[in-house]
Design a protein around this nucleic acid. Structure first.
Lengths: 337, 337
DNA sequence: AGAATATGGCGAAACGATTAGCTCGGTGTC
DNA sequence: GACACCGAGCTAATCGTTTCGCCATATTCT
């Protein structure tokens, strides 16, 4: 590769002038500028981003750590993040913590080593200090996404999980259901806990409560939801309606229903929270809340880039999005008797 | 951040010694080593990957350009690639060309600027010279994935598309179908062209050919497949079986069938090539070929890392994977009459 | 004993850019 | 004509590492 020195030599100017031409950082007379540009073209010179980064102390890299890359929800987030990051002139480095604190720790170390300019993190959920302050007391630009952890340093972008679950549950209650069950996510995550709380609250407001055994917690995984659903639904006292905590799990539940020959919505009503691409082909269409994941990701990156480019010392901001209820055909009014 | 100089000063040694301690690159006497390590700990020193990279001329970054990040197939590939890359000690920078040559060009430029050590590329399909040789004639380590383009410089990892389509088509023929239609991918891509060719070949071997209007090409997108299917299938002379070129499109076709109240497999048999996660919840289960995307991605990264670490001048290798036919319930024998 | 050989550690030159500070003519003002 | 001022371009220091070559000292060989 040609370096800036080669160009300087070829154009018979100093490296400072070449730099000025490249960056438009100072006035260079037309003849010189032309010579420099000719030399650049001639030598196929491209400035080394690495050298530039070292000097300027930034890397134009933004890191994304997601909790589960195999989950289509987060895959979609990667898609949105790549586009947003590119639009801001950065590149995206992707990490998968796979819900394991250990992997998250490794990724964070790697991010510091690469001197990424900032990080968008779907935390695994342990209370942690993500926005570690360095020696000078400046904190590393960080936006936490989707899950709330006890971190008063970082910006956060989340969805109102309680509201999402309440909306869905109220809809089921309005259809006359009272024997409502739920397959929840992990309860140490706000996305798991909050959705269960929202459901319980909504039921409590109508003076009902789920029966024991009708609320089962699991992981946000298709196969786990499948087995939990098979077990819960293959008995006479099964619920008449089921609230499933996320889209991936809903797929598992639908698969279980098919295997058990339970018809939805005739035999049981199913509703869920959040959505995943590909769910569109499912019949019956699922009644669910949709989360504006693209808008959320864009907003998160707006916050992040703002923190990178403007001050790192602004107070943290917390943006909460509202979910929207979308009706499918997976729920039916309770049949008496 | 503390630098190597600070550490050297604190431990009263030279920076060379600190470097030797960090990298284990030379013998350092126990007392000195201890002093240095103490200083490192004391100052919370972490070597700057950026400075290191500049000096050593590598970045420990591997780039991945996929043709369509919104496609679950490629999302899954990102998942596999992140894991593999991390296992090799690299980090993954993700780009989305969105099937646009212009975006791919930009991504390639960015990759060079970041001095990534290598790139795994799902090419948009234009004949191009990906493994550009630099001034010294060494080519940039590149592996092309999934689609064949005219590039004799790069390693490639692909699937045998013709075989995939043939298998599926033969299965439909064995069920007695002869009025077989197809919704194909873009024919300028080998994944599109090859699958159509495989289907036509298989039919030709049995002395049949699709009727005009029963082969329609589109894009690898759910919505495009949906509208093409609606149009093709909403007429009396519709095919009795349909071969759909990929998983995303199959979802769109199933959606069209539901809207048209055409029952699968009673009224029409559907089969497709490749698979996507989430398709598991679909009923009836799709008869399809499965592509070993994880193994393919792992193999591609093995080739890439090998090329990065061993010679860049080995002759290019081309690995072709074979698809496997997986039977679902979306196909039924032809009903005479 | 003196020469040859090893060995631990240091000094300083890279890597490829940016940028502060300087030089050196040319203008403008009084 | 002397003075300050300005603007284009250059020199050289710097970012934080790695690494080549060198220098003492200690060990071994003849």
């Amino acid at each position: 590769m040609a370096t800036i020195k080669d160009v300087a030599k070829a154009a018979a100017v100093s490296t400072a002038t070449v730099s000025a031409v490249i960056n438009d950082s100072a006035y260079v007379s037309p003849p010189l500028r032309a010579r420099v540009q000719a030399a650049i073209h001639e030598l196929k010179y491209e400035p080394s981003q690495m050298a530039r980064n070292l000097k300027k102390g930034r890397s134009e890299l933004i890191a994304l750590i997601v909790a589960d890359l195999a989950n289509p929800f987060f895959a979609r987030m990667v898609w949105a993040a790549e586009a947003a990051v590119a639009a801001w002139g950065y590149s995206l480095v992707v990490f998968n913590s796979d819900e394991k604190p250990e992997n998250e720790r490794k990724a964070l170390a790697r991010i510091r080593a690469l001197s990424c300019d900032g990080a968008l993190i779907v935390p695994v959920g342990l209370p942690a200090h993500y926005a570690q302050r360095d020696a000078e007391g400046r904190s590393f630009p960080t936006v936490l996404f989707g899950r709330v952890v006890d971190d008063r340093q970082s910006d956060t972008v989340t969805i109102d999980n309680v509201a999402a679950a309440s909306q869905v549950t109220n809809y089921l209650l309005d259809l006359g259901h009272t024997r409502i069950g739920s397959i929840t996510g992990p309860l140490h995550l706000t996305t798991g806990r909050g959705r269960l709380d929202g459901m319980l609250e909504a039921m409590a407001r109508r003076g009902v409560a789920p029966e024991p055994g009708h609320v089962r917690s699991g992981e946000f995984r298709e196969d786990v939801a499948y087995s939990v659903a098979r077990e819960m639904l293959d008995r006479p006292d099964r619920p008449t309606a089921l609230y499933v905590a996320n889209g991936v799990m809903a797929l598992g539940v639908m698969r279980a229903l098919a295997d058990l020959s339970i018809h939805c919505p005739n035999d049981i009503s199913i509703a869920s929270t959040d959505t995943i691409s590909g769910i569109g082909g499912l019949r019956p269409r699922l009644t669910r809340t949709e989360h504006p994941i693209i808008e959320m990701t864009n907003e998160a990156l707006r916050l992040l880039v703002d923190r990178i480019q403007r001050g790192k010392d602004k107070p943290p901001r917390n943006v909460v999005f509202q979910p929207a209820l979308v009706l499918g055909e997976s729920c039916a009014p309770l049949r008496r008797g």
